[in-house]
Each structure stands twice: as C-alpha cells, then as structure tokens.
Amino acid sequence: MTGPMVKIRSVRKCFGSVEVLRGISLDVPTGGVVCVVGPSGSGKSTLLRCVNRLETIDSGRIWVDGDLIGYAERGDRLHHLRPAQLCAQRQGIGMVFQRFHLFPHRTALENVMEGLVVVKGVSKGVARGRGTELLERVGLADRAGHYPAQLSGGQQQRVAIARSLAMDPKLMLFDEPTSALDPELVQEVLAVMRDLAASGMTMMVVTHEMGFAREVGDDLVFIDGGVIVERGNPREVLAAPRHERLRAFLGQVL
C-alpha cells in the first residue's frame, strides 16, 4: 500500500497556555510537494518541527512513511519511543532551517559528511565521495574546503540542503529556506529545491515564495491562528483565494 508519506491528524500543540496548533490534519502524498503559507506566528514552523519531533505534540497523531512519530502503539496504549528509536526516525527526515545552522567549525564538505560518519557510521573515505557528489549536485563542488563563515547565505543554505540529503531522507522539511537571504540569492536556493522536487523527493515547504509554490507545489496550505484556513491546488488557490484572510495575506506578501 502506498499511502501518503506524511499523515497528520488533529494535531494540537500548546506553549504554556497559548494553543499554537489547534487541530491540524494534513496529508503529504509520496513524491508530492506541499507548500505551507501563513502570517508570522501562525504556527507554520511549529507544525514542521512537530513532524520530526523537535517539538512534542499535545494531542493528535503524525505518521511518516507509516511510522507513528514519537510513539509506539502497543495494544491500545501509546509508549514513548526510546531515544535511539527517535534518532532512527529523524534520520529519514531531512530538515532545512531558515538560518541554515551549518556547523561553523567544519568545512562545507565536513558538514555534509558529518551525518554520514557520525550517525550512519560510514567510513570517512566513502563519506567524502558521497559528500563531494552532493556538493556538486547543489553546485558547490569548488567550495568544499570553505568554512560556513566564508560562504554567502545562498551557498550556506545549499550546503545545508546537501547535508540533509546525505542522510538519504524520504522526506524533506524546509522552514522558510530563503527568508534570511538577500533577494539576489533566493533563486539559487529555489533552483536546487526545484531540482529536488523534480527528482521525486517528498517535500513540506514553509515559504513566502508564491512563485515557487505556484510552479512546484502540488498543494498549498494556508494556516492562520493554528488552523488550516484554506487548501488546494496552488495555481487555483492563488488565482482565486476564497477566504478573506488569505486574500489579505496575499495582498501583503505579493
């Protein structure tokens, strides 16, 4: 059975007394690209972070590739996964952050090799080969020996994408990958993401780049106040938004 890669059901999440996610249900089909848009503070990052368990959820269920995230269901009880099992789940899910978060004490190539060597236990030689391949794929083969501080924002983000891809994820999460970039650097990162989508990667992308959503997205989800307000085919939704809140939001970002 080839169900959706990500299945999110009735997810709720509170920070203290503030309910940030108020019942989110969402599917990401295998090989599909779902773009999540919404105003600041609407809970987009939180939703993404729940999918790879950087945040715990208060209720609901999330499955990735059929695996329940964070818990094991035995009988009618849920059991917390052991740390090693959580790590195994995270390995299959790549995440790209708004602020890159490359390891500053390692070169571009070492950043890409890190997960392979440390988590997967691959030998350094093999990891170097694979890392070089991935840097080539994001167009940075000539920057392998550079430290992050010596790279532009767009280059850093491409290295960060390569670092995630090194783990051979089945799903990639992008949290506003181009929001911290100067306008002229946005396209080089989007180009890499376009290639990735074309290669069949399942992607969940929080973004304000409506052009990207329209062109690459299979689905567009508009979140406001912790609930999904509108969803559908990006081209249709962006051409004719039904909800006033989405119309107001698009008026601001476009």
Binding site: Q91, F103, V118
Partner: peptide, 23 residues
C-alpha cells in the same frame, strides 16, 4: 552555543551524546 546547532544535529538523527561531543 546557538540552540539551532543542537537542533540541526538532532535533525540529522544524532543522539544526545553525539550532539554534545561532535557539535
């Protein structure tokens, strides 16, 4: 150390000990 570093390492699937020692 920026908390984002820890998260990036955890997102790669590193254990707590690996995050501490390597990152």
């Amino acid at each position: 150390v920026d908390p984002g570093q820890r998260e990036a390492a955890e997102a790669l699937g590193m254990s707590h000990r690996q995050v501490l020692r390597r990152v």
